[in-house]
């Protein structure tokens, strides 16, 4: 949903960035992310003064099976693993010019999820990057106050990751499934 021309100047100015047509987003490497962000805020380059939304997305490693035809005509199924990633998605708008959205993505590998913080450029990223750190575990370099936002400080784990397993100490209330169901089956009155 990025308007067609918004991302092209960025691709020209910063050749290391890449346009992902399926997600309609600019993939920006972490080392130049802040430079790109600073460049985008200038009036000559689109004046993107408003960062509306900062999100984290977790993509687990995926196995992709591809059927290929070999030279001698036999079919073979190749399995390759597409590496997972932790992505941080920024939606940028320009309030002065009323344009947007321009979608920036910082893609980090799941083993080492580090991204550049864009808080020095747009203050609205401050709380949202803290939330991405809290729920996904992405460390933002350059963030003035990186600590957990929604979970308590001593919490361990990153709940929004796709492979998060809830700890076994979770308190739950009896519903018609589970324990209540068991007691119902045995004919016991719950007290």
């Amino acid at each position: 949903m990025t308007s067609p021309a918004l991302h092209e100047p960025v691709l020209q100015q910063f050749p290391a960035t890449r346009w992902d047509a399926a997600a309609r987003a600019l993939i920006v490497p972490a080392d130049i992310a802040r430079a790109v962000a600073q460049w985008l805020t200038q009036p000559a380059n689109g004046e993107f003064d408003y960062c509306s939304n900062v999100t984290g997305v977790d993509f687990l490693p995926k196995e992709i099976k591809e059927k290929t035809k070999n030279a001698d005509g036999t079919e073979e199924t190749l399995t390759r693993t597409e590496p997972g990633s932790l992505q941080v998605v920024y939606h940028l708008y320009s309030m002065r010019r009323r344009t947007g959205p321009l979608v920036l993505k910082q893609v980090a590998p799941r083993e080492k999820p580090v991204a550049a913080s864009l808080t020095p450029v747009w203050r609205s990223c401050e709380l949202q990057e803290r939330e991405v750190f809290d729920l996904f575990g992405v460390r933002f370099e350059g963030h003035p106050d990186l600590r957990r936002l929604l979970m308590w400080d001593e919490f361990e784990g990153f709940p929004m990751r796709r492979d998060y397993v809830e700890p076994a100490d979770y308190e739950w209330e009896p519903t018609p499934h589970g324990e209540v169901l068991e007691k119902h089956r045995r004919g016991k009155v719950i007290s």
Partner: peptide
């Protein structure tokens, strides 16, 4: 200016 930069809406 402060409001725009902080994402206030």
């Amino acid at each position: 200016a402060q409001a725009i930069n902080a994402g206030i809406t």
